[in-house]
Amino acid sequence: MSTLRGSTAVAGIGITPHHKRGTGGPALKLALEAIVAAAEDAGISPADIDGFVSYGSERSEGQKMMPALGTKELRFAALAWSHGGGIPGALNIAASAIATGQAETVVVYRSLSEYDGARLQVDVAQNDTAAQFLVNGLDSPIQMCAINTTRLIEGEGVPAETLKAMAQAGYHHAQQNPAAVGHGVQLTAEKYENSRWISEPYRLFDSSRENDGAAAVILMSAERARDLTEKPAFLLSAPLGTPAGWGPLEGNQNPLWSSGFSSVAKRLWAESGYGPQDVDVAQIYENTTGMGVAAIIDHGFCTLDEAGEFITFDNLIAPDGRLPINTAGGNLAEGFIHGMGLVVEAVRQIRGTSTNQVRGCSLSLMTGGPGDAVVSSALLGTEETL
């Protein structure tokens, strides 16, 4: 077993309100708000944070925040490759720094704002969209994800109903979460089916929302976390990587429908000592519903042939579904902070404080952005799972 298994824990969580795009103010301000909230939740001073880790196109670097946080010493800083696929991998980087003595208190965070950050333009500027897509007019993530999901439905026979089930589950959970942007939106089957096409097979409610906001979690050694007020969420595994032949290869990934998690999922289960049958709740990054469906399959919760029976509305909702997902509403209905809000909700489930709490939750999964050039997943557990 890896020495990282259970050696660190999430001790504090913080998240800002989900602001309408362009109204949240500077991304740096939002990052500070989330980090200070996470420090207060952990019962520590923000000045004690000595490591900063993020992913994707984060531009609120740790050194920029030091004066406002009163940082005593910056000992470690890193950025995980890729877009939303790097979230759980950022937890791995933070845990590695703590386990090797490079830092003691590391914050993993993400902030984004169209007020000043131009998040969408920054993602395009990372220049990892294959030229063959661009010359054929495919320049948005939902268009490229639509190709994978069309293959999933038309080529592999996974029912399109699974997409609707995933969307409805997120909006169902948002009704119990007053902070969710989808709170008050009842997504009936009729409402979903009558919504406009964005890029077939995706309709309006199949796509994640864009908004301004920030979220943060604070990691420290398991020993230190046990002494704090809040219940620790121990990090059992958080592998980052990609299988052979993956990456931005102009849609030549094999299999094309996949979310890219096959090798990462194997490492996740091997390192943690658990399997998909043991997971109590999952926060599935759904930039689009179809890619979330593929992530569920790639993690071994069901096969392609079983997907239609497993990925149903009743199975995906708390508290009694076989795999409750996105229990705060997810990227679709809670709000989109490049998926970082999913980490916060994964911790809430371990603490027992979710607005859609799964009874007796001891293992909480969070998957990163599916279909990304680099992906990652994390499994959090209670003390009893170590």
Rank of each mutant, 00 (worst) to 15 (best):
T129N: 02
T129E: 03
T129I: 15
A130M: 03
A131T: 10
A131S: 11
A131R: 12
Q132F: 00
Q132I: 12
Q132M: 01
F133V: 05
L134Q: 07
V135F: 08
V135H: 05
N136W: 08
N136I: 01
N136L: 12
G137Q: 08
G137K: 08
G137H: 06
L138M: 14
L138N: 05
D139L: 01
D139N: 09
S140H: 02
S140L: 13
S140I: 05
S140M: 09
S140N: 08
P141W: 07
P141A: 14
P141M: 12
P141C: 09
I142L: 07
I142E: 14
I142H: 11
M144G: 03
C145T: 11
C145E: 15
C145Q: 15
A146Q: 12
A146M: 10
A146D: 09
A146P: 08
I147G: 10
I147W: 02
I147S: 09
N148R: 15
N148M: 13
N148F: 08
T149G: 06
T149A: 11
T150A: 15
T150I: 02
T150K: 15
R151G: 04
R151D: 15
L152R: 08
L152M: 15
L152G: 08
L152F: 06
L152D: 06
L152W: 05
L152Y: 02
I153P: 06
I153S: 09
E154I: 13
E154G: 08
E154H: 12
G155Y: 07
G155I: 09
E156P: 00
E156L: 05
G157T: 12
G157H: 10
V158W: 06
V158I: 12
V158K: 06
P159A: 13
A160W: 04
A160H: 02
E161T: 14
T162F: 09
L163Q: 13
L163C: 11
A165I: 11
A165L: 11
A165R: 13
A165F: 07
M166C: 06
M166S: 12
A167L: 03
A167R: 03
Q168K: 14
Q168P: 00
A169K: 07
A169H: 06
A169E: 05
G170H: 01
G170Q: 02
G170A: 04
G170T: 00
H172Q: 09
H172D: 04
H173K: 06
H173Q: 07
H173S: 12
H173D: 06
H173Y: 04
A174F: 00
Q175L: 07
Q175S: 10
Q175T: 03
Q175V: 04
Q175R: 11
Q176E: 13
Q176S: 15
N177Q: 04
N177C: 08
N177A: 09
A180P: 00
A180G: 03
V181S: 00
V181G: 00
G182R: 01
G182D: 04
H183A: 05
